[in-house]
């Protein structure tokens, strides 16, 4: 029972991170019908930028640690959002009318480009996050000692998800995003500036992804330049699992995938953990391509 609870909470923490990254995939897919392969690498960039900011700015000396962490989070999210915005301008906007698979190839190119840019700037070694940031308290939950950082990651990801959910559902701009996702041409006729909405999506998605990258750095304590691929693929799996294009679906899919993976690692075999995530992806695409909450049918022939 104790092992089960530990694995469950671990799965929820990792799943929260997957969900944050998956939101970027699913929002972009919603408005552009494009798999943004570079999203995983924006996540990596977030982790590295967080490290640089922490190492260079001595924020922890100026501010109390929780405030310093918050400041770093905001800065990373803004910087990565800016990169996402520029990426859309440079690599995807010229291809808007050029057929979907051209854009997919461009996205792959962007992913390779970012991954190698990170490698050239920082070097190919594994980086260790400064550990003074890592909250070292533990919480006793139903007789199980849970590391505080785990709970913080779960809480932070849920807060961010709820914030996004409220933004999409409750504001006018959120309604515009939903409208563009349903039918861009009709949205344009209703006076919505579709280009601006797409830019906005490319600000929010990468921003959340960058924040998730920083969370991985703090949670696991180490990062490397290839981590974007595996996290990106898994987050994409999560997006498909919940139903691609569907925002609550991405949240649910992320948490679910995290829990499945943690339980599989705990009870089946650690070494097959990654393979199980991909197996879930393949099975879901064969059995139910619309995902759990997906209303839009994945076109089949």
């Amino acid at each position: 029972m104790e092992q089960f609870l530990q694995q469950l909470l671990n799965g929820l923490a990792v799943g929260g991170i997957y969900a944050l990254v998956a939101l970027g995939y699913t929002m972009v897919y919603g408005v552009l019908k494009l798999i943004n392969f570079a999203h995983g690498d924006l996540f990596t960039i977030g982790a590295y930028l967080g490290l640089t900011l922490l190492a260079s700015c001595n924020l922890a000396g100026l501010l109390p640690i929780p405030l310093a962490m918050l400041a770093v989070f905001v800065m990373v999210a803004l910087l990565v959002a800016l990169i996402g915005f520029l990426l859309e301008r440079a690599a995807y906007r010229p291809l808007r009318d050029a057929g979907r698979l051209s854009a997919v190839v461009s996205a792959l190119g962007a992913s390779i480009f970012f991954q190698n840019a990170v490698m050239l700037v920082y070097g190919a070694r594994v980086y260790v996050y400064p550990d003074f940031l890592r909250p070292d308290f533990t919480v006793s939950l139903m007789g199980v000692n849970v590391p505080g950082v785990r709970l913080l990651v779960i809480v932070a990801s849920i807060v961010l998800m709820l914030g996004l959910w409220a933004f999409i559902q409750r504001t006018r701009i959120g309604a515009a995003v939903r409208a563009v996702a349903i039918d861009p041409a009709a949205a344009r006729l209703m006076g919505i500036n579709v280009d601006k909405i797409i830019s906005l999506v490319f600000l929010i998605g990468p921003g959340l992804g960058g924040a998730a990258g920083l969370m991985v750095g703090i949670y696991y304590g180490q990062i490397d330049f290839t981590m974007g691929w595996s996290y990106g693929l898994k987050a994409f799996t999560a997006a498909i699992l919940g139903g691609i294009g569907n925002i609550p679906g991405a949240m649910l899919g992320g948490l679910l995938l995290g829990v499945i993976e943690a339980l599989a690692a705990g009870y089946v075999a650690m070494a097959w953990k990654d393979a199980i995530a991909f197996l879930v992806l393949i099975l879901i695409l064969i059995i139910r391509p619309t995902g759990i909450l997906g209303e839009r049918t994945a076109d089949k022939l």
């Binding site: 690599a91 050029a98 190839v105 461009s106 190119g109 992913s111 390779i112 480009f113 970012f114 190698n116």
Partner: peptide, 11 residues
């Protein structure tokens, strides 16, 4: 890096 860039520019 160059190949990634080339893939984008090519498309």
């Amino acid at each position: 890096l160059v190949f990634g860039l080339a893939m984008m520019l090519m498309m």
